[in-house]
């Protein structure tokens, strides 16, 4: 039987935090990523290739998570804005001060294009029983992020597995 607190068990498979990005998809983000990885794929650098293959510019598919990441600050913000809020909620609810991401998966559908406005929501899929790893003692959890464009067309699904933990020297037990 799971020792998961009921308040967390109730969140599993429940869509949370539906958000529409407050900035449009821009080609500049594509160049940042391509430059950071020295990716010379002509699909993203040569407008003629983009026109021939995708009917115009598209974003590199692995930039998908850009569109769920808020600005770190914006006018009116009273605290640091964070992506993947469900992850941070779990850290707080389970009193696990540290966390890492261990697994990530992407399923890529309709390409994202400059000018698109991307919406997303988060779904907690699972939380493990308490585990101990070399990092410390805590729990693994899995969160899906579902992305759609302004036409409500699915552009991708991203899944993260995180491990929230308390370092051994901090563990009160």
């Amino acid at each position: 039987m799971s020792d998961l607190p009921p308040a967390i068990a109730e969140l599993i498979d429940t869509p949370q935090y539906p958000v529409t990005a407050n900035f449009p998809v821009e080609l500049g983000y594509s160049y940042n990523t391509l430059s950071a990885t020295e990716n010379g794929n002509p699909l993203y650098w040569d407008p003629q290739v983009a026109q021939e293959l995708t009917g115009g510019p598209t974003m590199p598919p692995t930039t998908l998570s850009l569109w769920m990441r808020p600005h770190r600050w914006e006018p009116g913000a009273e605290e640091e804005l964070v992506a993947l809020k469900v992850h941070f909620d779990l850290k707080e609810m389970l009193d696990l001060p540290e966390a890492i991401m261990s697994d990530n998966s992407l399923i890529l559908h309709e390409p994202v294009r400059p000018g698109d406005t991307i919406s997303h929501h988060q779904v907690l899929r699972s939380v493990s029983d308490v585990k101990t790893t070399k990092l410390g003692t805590g729990r693994f959890w899995s969160i899906d992020i579902v992305y759609t464009n302004q036409d409500d067309v699915l552009v991708g699904i991203e899944s993260y597995t995180g491990f929230g933990y308390r370092r051994p020297e901090e563990d009160p037990s």
Binding site: E38, N41, P60, S65, N104
Partner: peptide, 13 residues
């Protein structure tokens, strides 16, 4: 992690 995904994309394409 997202940047590693971009490196995998570059490697594949």
């Amino acid at each position: 992690t997202p940047n590693l995904a971009a490196w995998f994309e570059r490697y594949i394409t």
